[in-house]
């Protein structure tokens, strides 16, 4: 989306949609200029552009027992996936985490969709005091047969999830969130390294085999414009 004529194009996750009403739901965290400006809008206000959906849809099949691991604002994309996977006959266990309880989202929705829901906060203000991977490790130890792990959230968290499931050979899918410009495969800003090969997240992804993704490389590339992002925020008096 692009907020106004001078705005940047940023990728956002579709959290929900209603084809009959012709609406989609997005959930965003106010971190940069665009999202902070978005947060200032009121009902009935307009944004300049919105395009999509982009990338490939999640593969919905019957896998068996599926664990969905979401962190921070990445949780936004869990309910749609979990719901569809549940309807396909999978057992759904959801683990969601945030820095602190105020940043936890979609708890109620996930309660309804999931067979089990676990909550973690870094500061212990709600649920398990610690990380989503603590719960994931416990689940793996307790129950041998986890067939799929789906993870969305901060890169560092997805990397940790992949590291937990790798020794157990549990299929793990991560949904990546690099910097994009056009979103149609044209520029390559969102290129990531998967299995040593360059892939474009916008058209080849956003979901990749988490065991093959070079998360460190992704983290480095996400920091390309840190200075400019700060400048942009401060310039707009939003810093």
């Amino acid at each position: 989306m692009r907020i106004d004529e001078k705005g940047e194009r940023i990728p956002l996750t579709i959290a929900d949609f209603d084809a009959q009403k012709g609406t989609i739901t997005i959930i965003f965290q106010e971190v940069g200029k665009t999202t902070k400006l978005l947060g200032l809008l009121n009902e009935g206000d307009c944004i300049s552009d919105f395009m999509g959906p982009l990338g490939n849809p999640t593969k919905i099949e019957k896998y068996g027992r599926v664990v969905c691991v979401g962190g921070g604002v990445g949780v936004a994309s869990i309910p749609l996936k979990a719901k569809a996977l549940g309807e396909a006959g999978n057992e759904i266990i959801s683990i969601i985490g945030a820095r602190t309880k105020e940043l936890l989202i979609l708890e109620e929705e996930l309660q309804k969709i999931s067979d089990e829901l676990y909550i973690t906060t870094d500061d212990g203000s709600k649920g398990h005091h610690g990380f989503v991977t603590d719960i994931l490790k416990k689940l793996i130890d307790e129950r041998k047969n986890i067939d799929l792990v789906v993870t969305v959230g901060p890169v560092i968290m997805m990397k940790a999830v992949a590291n937990v499931t790798r020794p157990h050979n549990i299929r793990t899918i991560a949904s990546l969130n690099p910097i994009m410009v056009d979103g149609t495969g044209m520029c390559g800003s969102c290129r990531v390294r998967v299995d040593g090969r360059t892939q474009f997240t916008c058209v080849d992804g956003p979901e990749f085999d988490a065991h093959r993704v070079d998360f460190d490389h992704l983290m480095t590339r996400l920091q390309r414009y840190l200075t400019e992002e700060k400048l942009s925020l401060d310039g707009a008096g939003l810093g």
Binding site: K6, G7, K33, G188, E228, S232, G235
Partner: peptide, 22 residues
Amino acid sequence: ANEFLTRINLMGAYLFPEYDTP
């Protein structure tokens, strides 16, 4: 070149920070 030129031509990055794209 596509990314470099798109940032400049389509997104106006040469006018950053007046335009948001860096």
